[in-house]
């Protein structure tokens, strides 16, 4: 298999983590919720997946546990921001700090302090017949199942967002919650639903990170990917398709980082690591007014 093919395969693999969480975050953001806590949600997901996979021996149980765990944390976020009118950004930051403590505590309780890495069940590569045999793009079709799922979800999410009643409600709540209230929409319930969906998808992303992309949990393993997801959403102009583009870009720069590290050890890897952040900075500056960013973003709606 050619080097390029392997590279493309790893791009898709690395993009999947961003994409899964990004698809969840898009719905949250469109409903007017800025959720910095995605980092913490993903971290929780990553741990719970390993715990589930380790105790039950099935990666799918791990995935389920991961989704439940992050949704529980997302429910805390929803409770504080919606019921108690807490500032979304600060609540998100609190969630991240909380998750970083909680995961360590839980991790050491389950696996002990001496860090023996046991073998766990992980997502295995699933080769699609015929397609995986293609030259160059072949490696793209030899990925674990969640990768395909993530990319299949993109058009589905795009459709739901733009063509369905649910999508209309979510977009409207983010733009003008008061108007939604006057036509009898349950604004808080829609926002809570969007937050929970963000939690679900972040959990999925975390699970994929620890049991798909890698095969174990390390403390603080999300390492800023949650923040990158937020950047991907802004970069992708708050649409699922855009998020996919951003996720692929971030995935590519991450994959490039590893490859160039091997190919040209002279240039410090940190410079490549910086690249996606710098690109995002520029992208955000260029967008400005044409953005799909909801008007009522990040503010709490008080009736």
């Amino acid at each position: 298999m050619s080097a390029l093919s392997v590279f493309l395969g790893s791009v898709v693999m690395m993009a999947t983590t961003y994409l899964l969480a990004g698809l969840g975050a898009v719905f949250g953001e469109r409903a007017g919720i800025v959720n910095i806590g995605i980092e913490g949600l993903m971290l929780t997901g990553a741990l719970m997946a390993v715990v589930g996979s380790y105790t039950s021996g099935s990666v799918w149980v791990g995935l389920l546990l991961a989704m439940l765990g992050s949704m529980l944390l997302a429910a805390v976020f929803a409770c504080f921001t919606i019921c108690l009118h807490a500032n979304q950004t600060v609540t998100g930051v609190a969630l991240n700090i909380l998750a970083s403590g909680l995961t360590v505590l839980l991790f050491r309780t389950v696996f002990g302090l001496n860090g023996m890495i046991p073998q766990i069940d992980t997502f295995e590569a699933l080769e699609i017949p015929v397609l995986s045999g293609l030259p160059v793009v072949g490696a793209i079709f030899g990925q674990p199942l969640p990768v395909y799922l993530a990319f299949v979800l993109v058009p589905v999410c795009q459709f739901v967002m733009n063509r369905t009643n649910l999508g209309l409600k979510i977009r409207s709540v983010g733009n003008h919650p008061k108007a939604c209230d006057t036509v009898g929409l349950p604004v808080y319930r829609i926002q809570a639903g969007a937050i929970l969906f963000t939690g679900l998808m972040s959990g999925f992303a975390g699970a994929f990170l620890s049991t798909g992309q890698l095969s174990f949990f390390t403390e603080g393993m999300v390492a800023g990917r949650g923040y990158m997801v937020l950047a991907a959403v802004a970069f992708g102009n708050y649409s699922p398709l855009g998020v996919m583009a951003a996720a692929l870009l971030f995935g590519a720069s991450e994959a490039l980082q590893y490859r160039l590290q091997v190919a040209y050890p002279v240039i410090p890897t940190e410079l490549y690591a910086m690249l996606p952040y710098i690109i995002t900075l520029f992208a955000i500056c260029i967008y400005r007014r044409k953005s799909n960013r909801p008007v009522y973003s990040g503010r709490n709606y008080l009736r």
């Binding site: 108690l84 807490a86 609540t91 609190a94 700090i97 909380l98 403590g101 909680l102 505590l105 302090l113």
Partner: peptide, 28 residues
């Protein structure tokens, strides 16, 4: 033998309860 990271758990909770101070208001 308690991992020192527990304090992050505490700090996160403290922030949560401070920003959620509406919890303590009579109105709620």
């Amino acid at each position: 033998n308690v991992p020192s990271a527990v304090i992050y758990l505490m700090q996160g909770l403290i922030i949560l309860f401070v920003v959620g101070r509406y919890l303590y208001s009579k109105k709620l």
